[in-house]
């Protein structure tokens, strides 16, 4: 077929056979099933349609959607606190999905992820190596963990009073250069 006119894709010449009744019935049965699953699709998206309509009517769209989230408001306050060229340690588990949200919004600040129950040697080594200006614990409901407690006790970090779902610590500019032992 050089001119692009449609033929039967098997390349066979001649007109197609008339449809058999059972093939027609099967096609209609499948069309019925498909129509039924459409209800499931509609049911699944109904809450989103409702939210969408409310937002359109209320004019709460775009950035305003983000600003409704306390975690995002906290990140916005962190962008005012942490200088763009600084590094921060983010203490959280990857699986929560919050650290990548922080990385996305706090860019161009350099982001280093550490697990929250961090032993002192591990945390102190990360502070020495990465030279962060701030340390962020995502969930303030969680205990500080041995690493952070040791860093506070050693005067390596101090709490920054910033309201929000997490805790912020300023890493002291004068970091001791000695090695650390657990």
């Amino acid at each position: 077929m050089a001119d692009g006119r449609p033929t039967h894709p098997d390349g066979a010449a001649g007109s197609p056979r008339p449809p058999s009744p059972w093939r027609r019935r099967l096609a209609w049965a499948l069309a019925g099933l498909w129509a039924a699953q459409l209800l499931l699709v509609a049911w699944n998206f109904a809450p989103e349609v409702d939210d969408l309509a409310r937002r359109l009517l209320g004019g709460r769209v775009g950035q305003a959607v983000r600003d409704e989230d306390p975690f995002h408001r906290w990140l916005a306050s962190l962008t005012r606190l942490i200088p763009p060229q600084a590094t921060y340690l983010f203490l959280d588990t990857y699986e929560t999905g919050k650290e990548m949200e922080a990385r996305y919004h706090l860019f161009p600040r350099r982001h280093v992820l550490l697990p929250p129950p961090c032993p002192p040697g591990y945390l102190f080594h990360a502070i020495l190596r990465e030279k962060p200006a701030y340390l962020i614990l995502r969930d303030q409901g969680k205990p500080l963990g041995p690493g952070l407690e040791a860093a506070l006790a050693a005067g390596l970090v101090r709490i920054v009073p910033l309201p929000g779902p997490g805790r912020v610590f300023r890493v002291q500019a004068e970091i001791p250069q000695a090695g650390f032992y657990d």
Binding site: V49, L52, L56, V61, R66, M100, R103, Y104
Partner: peptide, 18 residues
């Protein structure tokens, strides 16, 4: 629906953010 859902909400899904 998809167009409104796309442009009214900012990027939020996992791989889109990450």
């Amino acid at each position: 629906f998809a167009c409104l859902r796309a442009v009214i909400y900012p990027v939020w899904a996992w791989d889109a953010l990450a």
